[in-house]
Write a protein that binds this DNA or RNA. Structure first.
Lengths: 72, 72
DNA sequence: CTAACTATAATTAGTGT
DNA sequence: CACACTAATTATAGTTA
């Protein structure tokens, strides 16, 4: 079960790419939550992907809008 | 040199909090880059913190604005 | 398709310079 | 302050169910 080191280029196989996305987007949103909680900061994130109809957002729709509106 | 397990609550000590932020925001942006590169997706992220004058953004100013504009 | 498992890679808290 | 080190934790690729 050795795990290959990850090469940072597009995962060509569509199934592998989707599986990787489904794992990694959770890890990514978790990191956002941790950074927000541990430190005294404000994050907004939007993820568009072909793998879900709605974009994934952090921390939530309203707060994300507000954070982005501050950005010029 | 044992390392404590991280407790997910605000880091009270301001120096520790800043150091943690400076490490973690890099890790976070790296995860965003990886997710974008490995999978076929679009991310926009903004981080506001007391630790830098300008917000940190991914992938860049223009693309972040464009991604946000798609979000309603 | 989803979810659990687990060995290994990647991140990072604590420390030192 | 910034950067380097490294032990320990955390994330995840590959696999199995």
């Amino acid at each position: 079960m050795p795990r290959n080191k990850v090469i940072f280029y597009l995962i060509e196989n569509e199934t592998h790419r989707k599986v990787s996305y489904k794992k990694r987007h959770i890890g990514f949103l978790k990191k956002a939550q941790e950074l927000t909680t541990l430190c005294d900061i404000e994050i907004a994130t939007i993820i568009y992907s072909p793998y879900s109809d709605e974009p994934k957002v952090f921390p939530n729709h309203g707060a994300t809008i507000n954070t982005f509106l501050k950005f010029k």
